[in-house]
Nucleic acid binder design. Structure first.
Lengths: 341, 341
DNA sequence: GTTGGCTGTCAAAGCGCTTTGAAATTTCTT
DNA sequence: AAGAAATTTCAAAGCGCTTTGACAGCCAAC
């Protein structure tokens, strides 16, 4: 059933039917009623591809999903997607997801944009000096970036959390508890948030005249195995750190396993603060020793970004171009005073 | 840059350029070369919406993502998606994901199908007597179902694991270890796999003249909280079960927390077998007491389903319509002989 | 030197929708 | 009652692509 058939059925022109359906004012209320009735009976649905072609609007947001045969699925991605979805469903928007090799992000994003079946783009996993920014700017299609790109002029629309502030505050707390030997368990080095979090730690330490040794920093994918490995390494250092900062509860999961295996007590021998993206599966309060965290909901960020993206496409009011969310520092049992030698 | 502009640039007709691009034989090799060169220089990409409209093919598979404001994101979904993506990226396919309220699945699926921007559908979270099957059959669009629908004629294309066999075998193992008091921690009652797993347990027990008490069965969302709650309930029963079967490592996570909190030892006081979807975050061997599991990779299922779906769209050879994968039973430390009273 | 079969190219139709600009109808003025 | 204004409807163009059917040009064959 298409528009032509429907209009013939009704004895109206395609124009009138189309207008009736799309809420244009210049159609008689009685006629509109009749059209709506027929739609209900026939189950007619406009073909989106045709609609897209005619209007240039598709009712969809595009995003790239990094993937590859060995590439581990990322719970952060899923959680963020849930946030996007929650908002999208309210506006009858859908997603076009382009799977792409992580090394092929730029090209994949361009393909997605030019393909003509998305109205707006969402970009995550930002890197320092991210090459995608230049491309996005040249595209004349709305987009919002999750995170920022360290080293690039901040003249693009983004939503980010204050990573530097979060880790600065967390470090300060540990300093106040008397710790002096720190380690940082971070995400991949090239990612923007890793850079900023490291800076936060370093600047808080610098205020006390402390530095973060190269050996006390790990940069790795945020998986529990990597957390385990990194922590094992830290624990073997001659001057074992007593205060650990951790970029994700996923990393913390492995890290804590290493602590337990070494027979150390979390919150006493070792203090740890992790960043909490509020993943339903990894509640910091559910750890055997509840985790002190810096918290910011990834899902909430997804909802907000969808709002901005969809709002922009629908031209519904202006949105702030750049948002920086503060994180909360929530103290639980995984942090304690520095142990006496 | 569109076809028209490109063809003008080359001094060729749109037809010729289109044919050159799509690998038709009736175009001079020299001409094709020239066209390809121009494409490279101009960065021309065909508009997918137009292509879809003209050909009826879009290079995309559609799926519905259950979501709602309170609805917790599901790691199983993410892991499966990773599998789909891994295969899709090889064929330059993308996904169209329609977020929808879980109560609105049928309508959402129909919208997605009729929208005209997908070539094939993937359906998951199958229920007993699933109403979506009838709709899918009427659609004349390829689809593959993950799981089956208990109570419906099995005349639809699916890929499923042998849930009944898995839980039958797991129960047998526990019976051999001398256990007689069982409990089952299952997924939502209406879902197909829950039904089959329960049947597997019940039939293994029946062979020994045992039954599964109503109070020893929980049906709930597969979250760690629910696992905790269910296990707490089991532990308070007058005749405390010693053998637990668990539909997911996510449930097991919470369940084990409850076991620990009760001061019981897993693998000694309580034996537990969980089904393992091979989630990267929840490796059964990484639990403090490694988990005995029935294993089948969700991601591998995603890859295979994408293969079948894309293969069907591309009309690349016939595919088996129905596949039933066996699971592996892997014994680790969470199972042991029934404790002496 | 015509016929016939290839090869390479093209103009035009069509996919299903929206939108423009004009026509037909109704309603309002004077 | 006639003309102006507002309302309702329509035919046709266009979005960017593929595909059908036709048409030149070329060579081998009779």
């Amino acid at each position: 059933m298409n528009l032509k058939q429907l209009s013939e059925l009704l004895g109206l022109s395609q124009t009138t039917v189309s207008r009736a359906l799309n809420g244009y004012p210049e159609v008689n209320e009685a006629t509109r009623e009749r059209v709506l009735q027929a739609v209900k009976e026939t189950g007619y649905r406009p073909n989106k591809a045709a609609q897209r072609l005619a209007t240039g609007k598709a009712g969809s947001i595009g995003l790239v999903m990094p993937t590859a045969p060995g590439h581990q699925s990322d719970v952060h991605f899923g959680e963020f997607l849930a946030g996007l979805g929650e908002e999208a469903v309210r506006h009858d928007f859908h997603f076009v997801i382009m799977p792409a090799d992580p090394d092929d992000e730029v090209a994949a994003l361009r393909r997605l944009a030019i393909s003509g079946n998305v109205d707006a783009l969402f970009v995550a996993y930002m890197r320092g000096h991210d090459p995608r920014l230049a491309m996005l700017k040249s595209l004349s299609m709305p987009y919002v970036v999750h995170g920022r790109s360290f080293g690039s002029e901040p003249d693009y629309p983004y939503l980010d959390i204050d990573n530097e502030g979060a880790f600065y505050d967390a470090t300060r707390l540990l300093l106040q508890l008397g710790h002096t030997r720190f380690a940082l368990m971070n995400g991949p080095m090239h990612l923007d948030f890793s850079i900023r979090r490291r800076n936060g730690v370093i600047s808080a330490l610098a205020e006390r005249g402390l530095t973060l040794d190269e050996g006390c920093m790990s940069h790795a994918l945020m998986t529990d195995e990597q957390g385990l490995l990194a922590m094992e390494h830290f624990l073997q250092l001659p001057e074992r750190p007593t205060a650990i900062l951790c970029s994700s509860t996923v990393l913390a999961l492995g890290a804590i396993r290493a602590v337990n295996q070494a027979g150390l007590r979390l919150g006493e021998d070792i203090s740890l603060i992790a960043h909490d993206d509020v993943l339903p599966l990894l509640k910091p309060e559910s750890f055997s020793v509840p985790l002190t965290t810096t918290r910011s909901s990834l899902r909430a960020a997804g909802v907000r970004i969808a709002q901005r993206l969809i709002g922009t496409v629908k031209q519904a009011g202006p949105f702030p171009d750049q948002e920086l969310w503060k994180t909360e520092l929530i103290v639980r049992a995984s942090t304690g005073p520095v142990p006496q030698e």
